[in-house]
Every structure is written in structure tokens, then in C-alpha cells.
């Protein structure tokens, strides 16, 4: 059993929901990312999603794009990121999931990337530019290594297709709340709850909702229908203040912010 499967079995048995923060690896450097992941685990986050910076991300809004640019301008290398994640994984129980472009996975070689991820204790992959039709080769590679390959369903996904995607996904299903790129939104679409509820009836897989979520009221609104919530740009925006503020202060502020979301989740 994969660490992500274990986690959701346990959370479901306790009637609890997961909070999954997203941060960009190497923003502004890998040491800071490692330190911050430790803090997120200490605060009680259930999984952590780590964005591998990519030069041409088309699904990301300005905040996450800028974090990728900062990381790449710092000349962060993939092996340094994976080594750092290996160190973190040996120190915390929180499952780590990489969000990584297929451009990067393909360039390493599918087996090579999966082997390294497995060796570093990474539990799963989200590959945002790899739709289900193109994913069979990577799915086979991941399955052989007990890595979760998490697929996405969006508001534009037709329902019969959503069912097929749910069947292909492992670990959990990532439901994208909005039609658009990543970034904080004041309000979430009214049909979101209904869509997730419908999806819930089609699959036993845990469903985590991401894109646009940043406020405690979002957490209160969505946690009843989801198994987990993913928060990215709101953290990354705070991380962008490194350099203007001392590092330990930014770590504390991000931790405090995550704690307010965790509190809303526990209500």
C-alpha cells in the first residue's frame, strides 16, 4: 500500500479531511524549501505537494509562474530538488507528491524519474500536462514502483470522460475547482459542490479540490464534500517575501497561515 492510500484510509475512518499545501521547490532555494516542508509537517498538514519548477507552465497563474522563474533564476537543478525531498521524506511522515511537467519526466526517462522518486521516498506524481490518453506508459511505470499517479478532472471534463479518468487515477483524484489557471479567487463557482458530489458517486477514490482556494471560508465550504483541499498560490505569494523579510519570519508566517486553514478544516 502506498503512503497516500494509507493516509486517506486513516482520515476517512476518523471522519477527517486532508490539507495539502503546494509550494515550489527551490523558491528561492532548496534549503528554504526543505525547512518549510518541515514546518508544514509540524503544523499538521497531511500531504505536501511540491512543484518542480518548469520553464513553460501553461496551467499556472502569475504567482506560481513567478515562483518557477525565481527558482530557475537561482539555477536550481532537478537532482538537487529530489535529493532535498529525500532528506525531508526521511524526517517527516507526511507523504510528498511532486507536481511535475511531462517535459521534465520525459527528458529524464520515465523509469529513471520514477526510480529516483521512489528512492527519495516520494509517494506520488501529478503531471498536469499529461492527459489520461497519453498517460498509459507512465502509469505502468508508476504502478510497478507503487507510486501514485494522480489525474485531474476539471469543470470542462465531460462526465463520461471524468469516470474514465477516475478509473485511471491512483492515490486520489484532483478536482480542479475552476476553468482557468492557478491563483487565488474571492469566490468559487456555485456548481462546484454539485460537481464534486456527482463525482463522489462515481468513484471510491479520495477527491481533493484545488485551484483558487485560499480562505478559511473556502475550507469550510468545501471540506464537507471533499477528502482534501489543496492550497498553492496563497502560500507561494507569502514565500515570495523572502529577501524582504528574514527567512524564519516567512516560515513562521506561512506556518501560521496554514494553521488557520487547518483550524477551519477541523471545525
Amino acid at each position: 500500500m502506498n503512503a497516500i492510500d494509507d493516509l486517506f484510509i486513516q482520515l476517512r475512518s476518523e471522519g477527517r479531511k486532508a490539507l495539502m499545501p503546494f509550494i515550489t521547490a527551490g523558491d528561492p532555494d532548496v534549503e528554504f524549501t526543505g525547512e518549510l516542508l518541515g514546518e508544514l509537517a509540524r503544523r499538521g498538514c497531511h500531504l505536501c505537494e511540491i512543484g518542480i519548477p518548469y520553464s513553460d507552465p501553461v496551467a499556472d497563474g502569475p504567482v506560481i509562474q513567478a515562483s518557477y522563474t525565481r527558482a530557475l533564476e537561482g539555477r536550481v537543478r532537478l537532482h538537487a530538488i529530489l535529493d532535498m525531498l529525500g532528506k525531508v521524506a526521511s524526517q517527516v511522515a507526511t507523504p510528498l507528491v511532486t507536481m511535475v511537467s511531462y517535459a521534465i519526466v520525459y527528458r529524464q526517462g520515465l523509469e529513471q524519474y520514477a526510480d529516483t522518486a521512489r528512492q527519495r521516498g516520494i509517494a506520488g506524481l501529478i503531471v498536469p500536462d499529461l492527459p489520461a490518453e497519453e498517460a498509459s506508459a507512465l502509469a505502468t511505470v508508476c504502478k510497478a514502483r507503487d507510486l501514485s499517479l494522480i489525474h485531474l478532472v476539471t469543470p470542462t471534463t465531460p462526465r463520461d470522460r471524468a469516470v474514465r479518468i477516475a478509473e485511471a487515477s491512483t492515490g486520489f483524484l484532483y478536482y480542479v475547482s475552476i476553468t482557468g489557471i492557478t491563483g487565488e479567487r474571492t469566490e468559487l463557482p456555485p456548481e462546484l459542490l454539485e460537481n464534486v458530489n456527482w463525482l463522489r458517486e462515481q468513484t471510491d477514490l479520495p477527491i481533493c479540490i484545488g485551484f483558487g482556494i485560499s480562505r478559511p471560508e473556502h475550507v469550510r465550504q468545501l471540506s464537507p464534500v471533499a477528502d482534501g483541499l489543496i492550497v498553492g498560490s496563497a502560500l507561494v505569494r507569502r514565500i515570495a517575501t523572502v529577501g524582504k523579510k528574514p527567512r524564519d519570519q516567512v516560515v513562521r508566517e506561512v506556518g501560521d497561515y496554514v494553521s488557520t486553514l487547518l483550524a477551519a478544516l477541523a471545525e
Binding site: P128, P131, P155, T156, T157, V176, G180
Partner: peptide
């Protein structure tokens, strides 16, 4: 039908765009 020219081509885009 998958947009493959031999090995090349295909569709490596976010799920949001697949329907379009």
C-alpha cells in the same frame, strides 16, 4: 486519431483544454 505523426505529436496539455 490521436494526432500522432509516427512517434511525434499527440496532446500534452492540461485537462481543462481537452474538451475544446
Amino acid at each position: 486519431a490521436q494526432g500522432r505523426f509516427g512517434d511525434f505529436g499527440g496532446r500534452y496539455v492540461p485537462e481543462t483544454l481537452i474538451h475544446a
